[in-house]
Structure formats: structure tokens, C-alpha cells
Nucleic acid binder design. Structure first.
Lengths: 224, 224
DNA sequence: GGAGGTAATCATGTATCCAAAATTTTTGAA
DNA sequence: TTCAAAAATTTTGGATACATGATTACCTCC
């Protein structure tokens, strides 16, 4: 049946859209795998129409590909795509941070401060789920503070693209700890209100491709 | 009938998609205006299905909005959206330039050089169409040289979003000349292979919001 | 047993049909 | 004449039906 989190009155298209996206995220639908409209339609006991519309939307967002007249498949994420997206997020977050740096007030800074403290605690307790939630909130905080909604939306979309793809995002403690230290440094830069430094730090350090590549490869392409 | 540039074998959905996008770009479909599926269907003498699919795709790209059960309208571009997109393009082009700066070779640089020379000539002759084409090529050159395809794609999409919206992009000679001088400066920076400077220059000068805002407002919201 | 060609099957792309919600028009009473 | 309620119409959301290109299965011939 439908996943429970769906609004009762949502359109069938939206229900199917969320369902399929979730299936892709969980890896139940694997990259390269074929998606057959009729199968899904049968599964939900609805017609192909809303299925097709949902798939079209997923295509626009890069999750599936329509091969004309030949089928619909879950898109593969190549190393090149992942690293390009990674780097792009770095550019965007750098820009957002530069904007945010000059707009942060005392309250924002102490919010970030508190988040880092809780992150440290979570790491100490090996509570990586909690850490990830806090990490997300840390980033959301300064991204929103940039005041640029388009920038924010695009970043969210890109992150979904790589995080919600069929990946068992394994936790790599070493990686998390590295990221944590970088958050501390970033906070320090925010306190100095140094926009240029914030930009550079995020783009060239926090999201630096070379430094993170081994971890990225490990979490996306490790055997198991 | 169909616009002439359409491939013969394209799907109806794709034909309609391109047609509608073009209509929006030309301003034949104005922001806020309602799009009725049946009308278009009748116009092309095809069924509503491909129309709907095309509209869905346009929605995903931000050109139209589906108001559930109430209709489909051409999206308004607010000042806020335009300026946010503008700023975001600056961030992205800055990042692309930083990457490109270290990868440019002699040939690339002399290509850019030649383009600026032709741009200058075009400006002298008040040939703004030609200038715009060259301007586009200048940007494409270093964007592609970044080597990051995702970055490139996103920039293209954003530019389409603001340039292909119902706007009579008037030419403002003063603006074009300002941009031209900035291209010269950028070229100089590329020659120095200074990535950081290239990033900052594009983000904080060439795409600087405050400096360009009057021009933007003039081309998007002028009365006539 | 393998290669090549042909028929059967299947999935997509499009058309048509139906139902429900929203909008517009009409009607009727104050 | 005005305004509200009801009827008629329009429009979207979804279901069903059909056509065509692609894939698969099968069969023949070597």
C-alpha cells in the first residue's frame, strides 16, 4: 500500500512520485534497473497515467531516464557525476556562506555554536544519526541566512541528487570527525564576518574534491 | 503549425514542450496567463496527453505552475526571483572561472582574446546582436573549460530561466559597454592564472547585484 | 548447433473517455 | 435591479483503449 507519510488528499501523481523516489533512495530500485509503468500501475491498482506523470517529474530531476520507445530506467550515477555535483555544491555553499557571513547576528552565531557543541557530543557517543541531523541543521542555518532562496533550493536539489540516490551512505567516523573540525573553523570565520574567507574555506576546504574523494568513493562504490 | 526547428521524429510531447517554451519566451504567453490543455490540443490537433506531459516538464523547470484542479498558469518572475537567480549565476560562474583559470592553455586564452576583439568591433558598429552572440561564446568558453558538466548545465538552465522568460531584453548600450570592459579585465586575470581572483571578480563585480540592479530592472520591468 | 529471418509479445506514446471539482451562467425571489 | 442559489459548462485528474516501435521467441535452413 501507500507509504503512510502521504497526505490523504495528495494527487495520485504526487503519491507515486514520492513512492518511487523513496524506492530509488532506499536502493530497492537499483541504477540501470528498468521501471515498467504497467507493473507499478498494477501494484497500486491505478492507471498508467499518474505513474507516467510521476516518472516524467523524476526524469526532470535526474533520477530516471526515458529511453524513447525503449523503456524507463533508474539513472546510474557515475563517479564523474557525483564528483561534479560535489564540487558544484561546494561552489554554491561557498557563495551562500559569503552572503550569510555579513548578515549573521549574535543569535545566529550562538545557534551555530550550540549546534557544534551538540555535534561534538553526538560524535563522542558514536551517535552518527544524530550527528547527521545536526550537521544538516548547521548547513541549513547559514544557507537560509544567505537570503537567496534560489541558491538554497538548488543546493537542496543537488544534495538530494547525491544523498537520495541508491547509496548505502555508510558512516565513516573518520570523515565525520574531519567535517566536524571544519565546522568549528567555519564558525570561527563567521564570527570574524569574513565573507571572502568563508567562501574560500567552504569551496576549497570543506567541499574540496581531492580531500574528500577517497571517502566519497568509499561510500558510493564500496563492495559489500 | 510547428516551429521549423523541430526534428521530424521528435515525440509530440517534445514538440509541444519546445513550442510552449518558445511562446513563453516570446511573451505570447504572458505571466499569470492561464494555459488550457484543450486549447493547445485543438490548436495542434492532437490529444491532451502530450500537452500535459510537456506542461509537467515545464513545471519542473519553473516556467509554469499547476494549481491543483484549478488550472495551469505561466509563472510570474518576481524581482526577488530574478535577482536571486542573477546572484546565483554569479556564484556559479565564479566557481567555474576558478576551475577554468588553472586549466586554461595558450589556445584558450587566445580564443578569448580574439572574442574580445570581435566584441569591441561589434560594439563600435552598434551591432548588439553580434555582440550578444560573442558574449555568450566568451562565457561558454571558460564555463566549459571548468570541466564540470553539472556546473555548466545548471548555469545554462538558470540563464534560460531569466533570459527566456517573457522579457523584451532591450539592449542598453551603457550596460553592454560596462560588461565588455569587465571581460577585458577577466581575460587579464585568466592570463595570470589567478583562480581566486577570477572567482571573486565574477561573483563580486561582473555579476554584482547592486551594480547591475538598475539595468536589470530596466530590462525586465520597464513600461513601454 | 548457429545464423538469419519472421511472427508473437510487450512497453511505450498517444487518443479517447469518464468523473469530480471549479467556474460561469441562468434563474428566481426580494 | 440586485443578489443568492441552482443549473449548466468547462477544465482538470485519472482510466481505458489503441497504435506503433522494440524486444523476444520461434522456426527454418545451412
Amino acid at each position: 500500500m501507500y507509504p503512510k507519510f502521504l497526505k490523504e488528499h495528495a494527487s495520485l501523481k504526487d503519491k507515486v512520485y514520492l513512492y518511487l523516489k523513496d524506492e530509488i533512495a532506499r536502493g530497492n530500485l537499483k541504477p540501470g534497473e528498468r521501471i515498467k509503468e504497467k507493473e507499478i500501475a498494477h501494484q497500486f491498482d491505478i492507471s498508467r497515467t499518474p505513474i507516467r506523470e510521476a516518472l516524467l517529474q523524476l526524469e526532470a530531476e535526474g533520477f530516471v531516464r526515458f529511453l524513447p520507445r525503449r523503456g524507463i530506467i533508474v539513472r546510474e550515477l557515475t563517479v564523474k557525476e557525483i564528483t561534479d555535483v560535489w564540487q558544484t555544491i561546494g561552489v554554491l555553499e561557498g557563495g551562500a556562506a559569503a552572503l550569510a557571513a555579513t548578515r549573521m547576528n549574535k543569535r545566529d552565531l550562538s545557534n551555530l555554536e550550540r549546534l557544534t557543541q551538540r555535534m561534538e557530543k553526538a560524535l563522542d557517543e558514536d551517535n552518527y544519526d544524530e550527528y547527521n541531523r545536526l550537521n544538516l541543521r548547521f548547513h541549513e542555518t547559514f544557507l537560509k541566512k544567505s537570503g537567496n532562496e534560489q541558491l538554497y533550493e538548488i543546493i537542496i536539489r543537488l544534495k538530494k541528487r547525491i544523498y537520495e540516490h541508491p547509496v548505502k551512505m555508510v558512516t565513516i567516523p573518520e570523515w565525520e570527525r574531519k567535517a566536524f573540525r571544519e565546522h568549528l573553523e567555519l564558525l570561527k570565520i563567521f564570527k570574524q564576518k569574513d565573507a571572502q574567507k568563508a567562501e574560500t574555506y567552504l569551496r576549497e576546504v570543506h567541499w574540496n574534491l581531492e580531500e574528500n574523494l577517497p571517502f566519497i568513493l568509499k561510500s558510493y562504490f564500496q563492495e559489500e
